[in-house]
């Protein structure tokens, strides 16, 4: 029986400057293989992610499943 693929988890987030002059949210994901990789979300998606996670601060996103990002789309 093949193994199921484990989950990716948010390990941090910070605000960065987007190409078009808007603030963007850089979210760091730790994937199942232990490697971290950044994902950049636009302003609207970033704010939705914070709302979906009940996060009042970007640091509150740590520990959330990557699925929260999917829900913010």
């Amino acid at each position: 029986m093949p193994e199921a693929v484990p989950e990716a988890v948010i390990v941090g987030a910070e605000i960065v400057a987007g190409h078009d002059g808007a603030a963007e949210l850089l979210v760091r994901l730790r994937h199942a293989n232990g490697v971290e990789s950044p994902v950049v979300l636009d302003e609207e998606t970033g704010l939705k992610l914070m709302a979906a996670c009940g996060a009042s601060h970007v640091d509150d996103l740590a520990g959330q499943s990557w699925r929260r990002i999917l829900e913010a789309s």
């Binding site: 605000i15 400057a17 190409h19 002059g21 808007a22 603030a23 963007e24 704010l47 601060h57 970007v58």
Partner: peptide, 19 residues
């Protein structure tokens, strides 16, 4: 790159200020 915003729209510039 510069970031710009106004209070007309929500901005992530304030993301470290929950209120």
């Amino acid at each position: 790159i510069d970031i710009s915003f106004s209070l007309l729209r929500p901005s992530l510039f304030f993301a470290r200020l929950p209120r």
